[in-house]
Computed example of a mutant assay.
Amino acid sequence: MLDNHQKNIATFIHLSTFSRFLIPFGNFIGPIVLWMANKEKSEFVDTHGKQAINFQMSILLYALILGVLTVPFFFFNLFSSFDFIDINLFDGIHLNISEPSPLLYLGGGLGALAIIGFILELVFIVIASLKARDGEFYHYPLTIDFLK
């Protein structure tokens, strides 16, 4: 039988990922500290801790992949109008707003995907916290199980 303390610890493990807005890498530090301190006390807390950490590691991996894909498109679009042979570089810059590059659309689409992913991440964390508060197990979608 789960007591309120176990439910609260599991809830705080999920909510501690929001500490990244105050502390760099707080989304990893908070859940890891709470999970390591309480994982032997309850299988419920252990499962929720692993889920929270696995989800944050998966989100980091997905963000790195999106960044690796998006950044080159941005730089290719930015430097497409530069003439690198010309010494007087600033006279050769021409901005054509009427015809944006297809690379801009692709980079913008990947950027929009990143924003949607961020919003979904926040929603999933809140859902996991509510499930933990109610004493239910929760599996984050699209999570890679790094810790088993």
Score class of each variant (00 low, 15 high):
I119P: 10
W35H: 06
F18G: 08
F55N: 07
K7L: 02
N4F: 09
H94A: 08
V45D: 10
G49F: 01
G26E: 11
F84I: 00
S19A: 13
E40T: 07
K148V: 11
F25G: 09
L103P: 01
I125R: 04
A10I: 04
G135Y: 11
D91V: 00
F118K: 04
A37Q: 15
L103G: 09
A112G: 12
L78N: 12
N77F: 13
N38L: 02
G135M: 04
D86H: 09
G49I: 02
F137C: 08
Y140D: 06
P102H: 10
W35E: 02
F12M: 09
I53W: 03
L60R: 15
M57Y: 00
L142C: 14
V45N: 10
Y62V: 05
H14R: 06
T17A: 13
G117F: 08
A63I: 02
I53Q: 04
F74H: 05
P100G: 13
M57Q: 00
I85W: 00
H48C: 05
V45P: 11
Y62E: 02
N96P: 03
F76I: 06
F118Y: 09
A114V: 06
P72T: 07
T47N: 13
L64F: 12
L142P: 12
L103S: 04
L15V: 03
A114W: 13
A132S: 15
I65Q: 12
S80P: 05
T47G: 07
G107T: 03
D3F: 12
L147E: 06
I23T: 14
F28I: 15
L22A: 14
L104K: 13
N38W: 01
R20F: 08
E136D: 05
T11R: 05
N38H: 14
I29H: 09
V123E: 09
A112L: 14
G135D: 07
G109P: 07
I115S: 08
K131I: 03
F74E: 01
D86F: 00
F76W: 12
L122R: 08
D86I: 01
V68E: 06
D46M: 07
I116M: 03
R20G: 13
F90I: 04
R133E: 01
A132Y: 11
L66K: 05
L64I: 14
P141W: 03
L78H: 15
I93E: 10
Y140C: 08
A52F: 02
V126M: 08
S81Q: 15
H14D: 03
G117Q: 04
K148Q: 14
L104S: 14
S58I: 11
I23D: 14
F44R: 08
Q51A: 12
N96T: 09
A114H: 12
S98V: 05
I9N: 03
P100C: 13
E121H: 11
P72I: 08
Y62R: 06
H5P: 01
I115A: 14
N88S: 08
M57V: 01
L130S: 04
N8G: 01
L110E: 08
G67V: 03
A128V: 10
S19F: 07
L69I: 15
S58M: 13
I125W: 02
L147W: 11
D134V: 07
A63F: 07
E136M: 00
R20E: 07
F76C: 02
F79C: 01
N77W: 15
F25D: 13
I119S: 10
L66W: 08
S42F: 05
P31K: 00
I127T: 15
W35M: 04
S16F: 07
I93G: 11
G30P: 10
I65S: 13
L106Q: 11
F18Q: 07
